[in-house]
Design a protein around this nucleic acid. Structure first.
Lengths: 248, 248
DNA sequence: GCTTGTGTGCGCGTTTATGCGCGTTAGATT
DNA sequence: AATCTAACGCGCATAAACGCGCACACAAGC
């Protein structure tokens, strides 16, 4: 049996039954549990099913419970990201006003943030806000239109709210990092929020793994020199020596 | 049975019956009370049910009485809620700008909202916003500080954002409904958001089951005449004949 | 023929879920 | 108000599920 056929079989079994266990699938398809687990991982990443402890469920059933459990461990085993986030989190000082950009890397950052006195976190992501509040942080959310794909807030309300604030420091993700093209994002509206939020922040940090160096996304939101980059992994030689690049 | 399925089963049992005890759930699902307790904890954190001493209740019922226990299980409100929400949802017109208040009743309302052309929904709850966005609605979130308990946004930013908007219609929950004391809420800051949002709305609807009539919570956010009440069940005689009370 | 890559199974250490026992706490009863 | 009972949370032990590295098999390409 072709691996591709097996994947399809798993999906249809899950769809039909609503949920199945790993041993059930292994038995039905004549392969070991290891293989089934790998398949489930693949299908989960492709958003065709939802992988849960013990097996898999159809996407409709999974909705709410996924949020906190799965999201947090989705790409857990990334040493680089862990180190980057730990380093970045250490930069937050007591009694400060901190901006947290939307994105998966900054979401990881939240888990590392210290519980300091008098720190208020501001974010443009409802998902990030929930995590911050869950950890007992004082949390402020920008207003605006909610983009379903990224759970980020954009538009004039978000920008207007930013105008009231001045942050001591802030953390952003970036889809592209290049010396000439600067920091770039895939979406105009989100880039605008990034741009304006940076403008109101004293100490600006972009946190990113090494893979983003040399990449260029459609919309630029800051010059390369506008922020300090905290990164890890195999940074291209060209960027290693730059004094606004911190490799951990 | 998958743990994930068990969680879903608990939620639907709670939704259907209004409230259930721990031993009941343990018996029905074939696990021990310990496991049920842990499940309830999980579900409570995910805001899918409300954990109370003795078992769990649906979210709507928990909001009324902060410290309710299991024994008063007047169950039947479930059907009522469905009808109330269906009736309320039918009031939304195409090309309109609609405000949705935070709270468990309005959360139920979201499931009934029609997919109409050109409708934008605005809410002060990040949870409601996520549900709206998930259903493909154009969604706007007020800014402001996030209250962890209720996932509602409060404070000057929320109020300032409201100032820019004028809604065609809006839906609010209320902890208390009384002819003299008007509509009341348990919290000052949340009441303020309710008050200001109502001020910017042309057609105002309070959706509530009959149990709230005669109840008074600490903070008033509107006069009794300021909104049309959509309700169901055994409405006290005094209120039945009032022309801003719609019983479905 | 050899290399390279991919898919699969297996073993191992780690994590997670569950049940049980205990002391503590919250509601109910009087 | 005092007492009683059931519910509760916590820690621990166990078993299942899990992720990962390694080895092997087979196929494709040089």
């Amino acid at each position: 049996m072709l691996a591709e056929d097996r994947l399809n079989a798993i999906v249809s079994m899950v769809q039909q039954a609503g949920s199945v266990t790993v041993p059930e699938l292994a038995e039905a398809l004549g392969v070991t549990a290891s293989t089934i687990r790998r398949d489930l991982q693949t299908l989960d990443r492709a958003h065709r099913i939802a992988k849960v402890h013990g097996g898999a469920t159809s996407l409709e059933r999974a909705h709410v419970t996924r949020d906190l459990t799965i999201n947090e461990r989705s790409d857990l085993h990334n040493d680089d990201k862990e180190r980057i986030c730990a380093r970045a989190a250490a930069l937050v000082e007591p009694e400060s006003f901190v901006y947290i950009d939307s994105g998966s890397t900054t979401l990881r950052l939240i888990e590392h943030l210290p519980r300091l006195e008098g720190v208020t976190y501001v974010t443009d992501s409802v998902l990030h806000a929930q995590h911050l509040a869950l950890r007992g942080m004082r949390t402020v959310v920008l207003g605006g239109e909610l983009k379903p794909e990224t759970e980020a807030l954009v538009g004039p309300d978000a920008l207007a709210t930013l105008d009231h604030y001045n942050f001591n420091c802030g953390f952003w993700g970036s889809n592209g990092i290049a010396a000439e093209q600067g920091f770039t994002a895939p979406d105009i509206e989100e880039a605008q929020v990034k741009r304006i939020s940076m403008r109101h922040t004293a100490k600006r940090f972009v946190i990113s793994d090494a893979s983003k160096f040399g990449m260029v996304a459609p919309v630029k939101f800051a010059d390369f020199r506008d922020a300090t980059i905290i990164t890890a992994g195999e940074v291209p030689a060209k960027y290693q020596s730059m004094d606004n690049v911190i490799t951990v």
